[in-house]
Design a protein around this nucleic acid. Structure first.
Lengths: 338, 338
DNA sequence: TCAGTGGGTGCAAGCGTATACATGAACCGG
DNA sequence: CCGGTTCATGTATACGCTTGCACCCACTGA
């Protein structure tokens, strides 16, 4: 019914082998022949059968993007960056949402879906504790990770430790000493970024001899609503913080709302800073440490391609790539009121 | 190197045909045999080769999701809904970003990438004018669309006409007569939703005998920043509107910012209403017409599956499915000040 | 008892491409 | 003029699975 490489070969008066070589740009094909084949193929509206090609060659021409969320801002932004590169490279993108492993939902283990299906893996922020992570990492194919740290795997991320230091330092410079922390979740179930950001936060607190009060820490689950609840908890303390570092802008948004709901004004009464530079942050005047989110995806995808096309010779060495961040001061942070 | 169906067949003492049938749950396989095969397959850690299966059967087991954006809120939300259903149905999701066709970027035509690669198409909000739309629709396979209207194709959307009417009516009921409109873009390059929303807006204006002032219309490109610029343009009019209907919440966010930048207060001085019920809307007290965005994706995917599995008998008839919307009143809209 | 029935199973022919290998022509220097 | 290269091309097999068809073996009812 649909036309195959044989039809093209017949129409062009060559063998299927030549058609295959000509169309794929392989060497050792006469230029005239190649053009002829291309013309015939175009005229017949020939489209190669990926299944057949994959079966015969063993290459799938597609890579899996594994992510715990699709619609959350950070993730959709990363996916968008990844897609732009994969499209350029002519690779199919198989998007796999593994979901939040803590929800206890019966989760379909992604490994079987990857086995013979893709040539490479791009893993976005799977927590080290995620039960599916290890089987995925054991898969023998090129990989790159965003927001993770694994030996022998290309890892792309901002320096979360540093970013948290920048944010915290900013608050300290404004004279704040009682500083709250809005983290994502408890230590048992954290993204690598969370762990690093907490370390960064603590390191600055320690450096300046500021006491860390465990009552000044709350979990916001990286959602607006969670950030609001977390901030309310902090505000309910006997002595609330005068400044708060939220691990993400979205949690900071919720926190700002909580602050206002108590008749206080962010920046005026309580300083708050996040990480991300979310598109809304500018409009809400939230100070933040900006990270180039889509760029993370771009870089990760590029490094993945580099691995796939580094055929032995110019051996690609896996590495940890850190992307720079920038402190952006807005009016949500201000000097401590005396 | 990797184990094939033949290995399983040999180990189980049956033919490859039986293994194939047993593992895929086809009828006419003895129960004991089926269990035996499954056990052997599991033990050998056998994973079917999709390429071979696809080549032999002609089915790809994957569907393409075609979208102009990945990271914008509406789209990522829809994609997330789609993915959840496809994953349940055991189908691969091939995410294809066709990008904004107006940008003039050399855009890779998606059609060749679809031809033999997928069993179905899920098209998200491609404008009728999009040059790639027609070739895509001509592809002979099951399709469903979100936010489009095409005869003979399953189309899923809210009733945009009605939603706009609800929003506009809400403003009118508050006594506003000079009502501005923030649309996405000019008529030549609109999503179906835009056209319908404008019609809904106009129908209410006409019904109440309110004059439409073309100076009270501006384009916000469905971005926050665009909404801000659009609102500034409206505020620069000799007689600015006392109320504004923005076609999306994100544009409304920008508009609120613009209003504030002039020392005015949304709701107090100028009422504004959007469409979406974006997660931030509650926090920004934006009145809006809520639409279940992820649900659109879910329904579209379900209807697509229904088409694919309606094997002739219970013929699936393509239809336009309208999902209900809800007016949500918040403080960004209020009675007109006298 | 026997033709008919239907479920369980095996046989073998594809599915459409990639590629190792063979082939033949053209070209080289000695 | 000739053995050795190099390049363009063809031949033919493999890739791993699905599925139409044939087959066998209970069963069934007459």
């Amino acid at each position: 019914m649909s036309i195959t490489i044989r039809d093209v070969a017949a129409a062009a008066g060559v063998s299927t082998a030549t058609v295959s070589r000509a169309l794929r740009g392989l060497p050792n094909v006469d230029n005239a022949t190649r053009e002829k084949v291309k013309a015939v193929a175009a005229e017949l509206d020939y489209v190669i059968s990926p299944s057949a090609s994959r079966l015969a060659s063993g290459r799938t021409g597609s890579i899996a993007v594994i992510t715990p969320y699709i619609s959350r801002w950070f993730f959709s932004e990363v996916i968008s960056g990844v897609e732009s590169i994969l499209q350029k490279g002519g690779l199919d993108m198989l998007l796999i949402n593994v979901g939040d492993y803590q929800n206890g939902h019966a989760r379909i283990p992604p490994t079987p879906r990857l086995k013979r299906r893709v040539d490479g893996l791009l893993i976005i922020s799977l927590p080290p504790q995620d039960p599916d992570l290890e089987p995925i990492l054991n898969l023998d194919m090129p990989k790159s990770m965003i927001g993770g740290i694994t030996q022998g795997v290309d890892c792309i991320a901002i320096d979360d430790f540093l970013a948290a230091q920048m944010a915290t330092e900013h608050l300290v410079q404004f004279g704040h000493t009682r500083i709250g922390l809005i983290a994502g979740g408890p230590a048992e179930a954290r993204f690598v970024a969370e762990t690093q950001r907490e370390r960064g936060f603590r390191s600055v607190m320690t450096r300046y001899g500021l006491q860390e009060d465990s009552m000044l820490e709350a979990f916001g689950r990286f959602t607006i609503e969670g950030g609001e609840r977390a901030m309310l908890a902090l505000l309910n303390q006997a002595v609330p913080p005068t400044a708060v570092f939220a691990m993400s802008d979205e949690m900071a948004f919720g926190a700002m709302q909580a602050i206002r709901s108590r008749g206080l004004e962010p920046g005026e009464d309580i300083s708050i800073i996040g990480i991300d530079n979310h598109p809304m942050s500018g409009y809400l005047n939230l100070s933040t440490v900006a990270q180039p989110v889509a760029q993370l995806g771009v870089i990760a995808a590029e490094r993945l391609l580099a691995q796939m096309f580094a055929l032995g010779d110019s051996a690609h060495k896996p590495d940890l790539v850190n992307v720079a961040t920038t402190l952006i001061e807005r009016s949500s942070t201000a000097p401590r009121k005396r």
